[in-house]
Design a binder for these strands. Structure first.
Lengths: 191, 191
DNA sequence: GTCTATAGGTGGATAGAC
DNA sequence: GTCTATCCACCTATAGAC
């Protein structure tokens, strides 16, 4: 299956941003890796922030789709959380952050449209987690005190932070322990 | 008390890096804020990565000193953890990340000397937390399963991630809840 | 759609006067 | 130690031929 030029550009750009950040890449970097010219890239994405915005919306769609897939395939809340954790392992292995985690760090330097899109990612993402936590507590599978929303935010923070610190420490195995440990904390003690 | 020009430059640079990142600031930015010229900055810090390195070593000294102060003033492990959490609140309010958290995201774009210095920050930092967790568990004040080192990494990740996501979400009140919630998790149920 | 060429600006860094 | 002036590499973006 051959992907379109646009998708190819977005794939390369996403990998670079997740590794080095939005402010540390240029059209020249992408052109070199895709094997084309800077001007050609501008034909597909007129400005860098246009490219950045498409990057975020595509990423958000993909992640929310993956979460939907987890939702439909699995019924156990605990397994949903484990599958959620698995989504991060691949990124960790390639020493990449979550695209929106990286962009959150650079948030103040982004165009307004990109800032809003990054916020939307975290909103949708945390809403999904909140629902999983609520339904899991309801059927007795999960156990925790207080608002599910706060726990959802804590889980998101932990994973984003694990990816962040892993970029410096390169101790991915231990970070995997961290993430699995975090999820198992929510398992009901009685089950 | 009048601070030296060097300290003034470092203060301004640190604030910018913690807000916008290392790759999104220039000598021109600092010069404008300090009220001097780019050439004058180069007199104090010959290259940008020299400035960056001093930024990291100064920050690490300050943080490790603050942790030492907590260590000498307080004997309760739980209170030490709470004081640790307090260190992050100020940063959160100004919508700044931990300097080394920001630099961890940009890690691959930094000079080798800066990369090593950032690693050293996390090493020293996590060692301190590990010791607090171990001594707290020993005297029955704290309760947790498994290796203290893994828990120390999890706590560091959570705080770094909370600061990261807060930059996008600006929901600092909730992030404070997240951080306090995280610490109280370690309180012994019996006490 | 792709290219070469280039505009117009900013990056880090240096020379040399004061 | 501070400045102005300048270098050169690179940035985003555009013009215009093919």
């Amino acid at each position: 299956m051959v992907q379109s030029k646009q998708e190819q550009i977005l794939d390369v750009a996403e990998a670079i941003v997740r590794s080095r950040g939005y402010n540390a890449f240029s059209y020249a970097d992408i052109a070199a890796e895709v094997g084309t010219s800077k001007a050609s890239l501008h034909h597909h994405f007129a400005t860098k922030s246009d490219l950045g915005l498409r990057l975020v919306t595509r990423f958000t769609q993909n992640v929310l789709q993956a979460l939907d897939d987890i939702e439909t395939v699995h019924s156990s809340a605990l397994i949903k959380l484990r599958e959620y954790a698995r989504l991060f392992e691949g990124a960790m292995e390639e020493n990449q952050m979550c695209l929106c985690g990286m962009l959150a760090a650079e948030h103040e330097t982004l165009s307004e449209a990109m800032q809003v899109a990054v916020n939307d990612f975290f909103d949708g993402h945390e809403r999904w987690l909140e629902q999983v936590l609520l339904s899991g507590r309801e059927n007795g599978e999960l156990e925790f005190d207080g608002e599910a929303k706060v726990h959802a935010q804590a889980i998101v923070s932990s994973f984003q932070g694990a990816l962040l610190v892993a970029k410096s420490q390169r101790s991915m195995k231990r970070m995997n322990l961290v993430s699995s440990h975090l999820v198992e904390n929510y398992r009901a003690k009685s089950s």
